[in-house]
Design a protein around this nucleic acid. Sequence first.
DNA 1: AACGGTCGCAACCGCACCACA
DNA 2: CTGTGGTGCGGTTGCGACCGT
Length: 337
Amino acid sequence: MGRSPCCEKEGLKKGPWTPEEDQKLLSYIEQQGHGCWRSLPAKAGLQRCGKSCRLRWTNYLRPDIKRGKFSLQEEQTIIQLHALLGNRWSAIATHLPKRTDNEIKNYWNTHLKKRLAKMGIDPVTHKPRSDVPGAPGGGAEAGAQHAKAAAHLSHTAQWESARLEAEARLAREAKLRALAAAAASASNSSTSAQYLPHPAAAHGLDSPTSTLSFADGGAALASVLEAHGAAVRAAMQQPMQAYEEACKDQSHHWSNEVDAADASFAGAGFTGLLLDVSLNHNTTRQAGSIDAEPEDAKAHETEEEKNYWNSILNLVNSSASPAAVPEHEEYSPAPEF
DNA sequence: AACGGTCGCAACCGCACCACA
DNA sequence: CTGTGGTGCGGTTGCGACCGT
């Protein structure tokens, strides 16, 4: 149906922002809050369209944005989440505190995608490419094993994806409730609260561009679960049930196809499966002398990684009532790692 | 030093979704 | 129900920085 432009193109500045423009936007938002983006430029004295202002604020000027080099753990998280979610940068950003979706997207496109391709891993499917010499899974036996692991990973990814969807849903709901509560006490709102994206940001639930985050590895989610337990459980049941339906058709096939991978899954869990990929990734990087890191640092990050995923999986699992958890073994609570 | 190619990042574009009148 | 405005999101582009010759 087509839409009118977000603003009159005539007379509006485009391109890089100057420090003066940044200062104008920053000081205006700090004093007034952004309010309606479309009307903001005129009020703030900027020759920009509202959309440009919003992007500049969201991706660059906000005080709660971390800039600079991505840590190894952040890289791993991006790769793992990309394997699960694809190019859903905002969803990925929710799991990387203080990183914007734009930054993650850029980092993926300019660094990680190329690195995976160099390793012989298809950055789209996250599966080894057989046409690359020396790629993982090159041999017949290794290939079969990898196929099983990949099949299981895909299987598990569906489950995890459903969970992430539910997390997003419940966080949105929590946000709406919080906004309603904030509206009730709007008369005494402070300026700092005005430019925060939503009240949940006050307890670390915020991500620079998204409505959902687990900045402290799941504690924020825990608080949401605590506050809205019944609604959360109801929300959680939907994707779980949907996935259960899908599994009814597939479970036999899966159980035959991926039993070897399941064995490893039982021992190492989903995190372990992913970490296995990540550790191979690290090994390759070291072999290629790219950002080589000491072994103990790597082990430390691995432990953190396990804890990170454990906290998410356990929190989500604990939120679902026992009756809501399907009996299929794949839905059993996250294994202890 | 000059030039051309490549890389990385900020910013833009356009579509999709949602809320609301 | 439909049209419109506001915003979110992912893809793409433009340009400066960097690097090799």
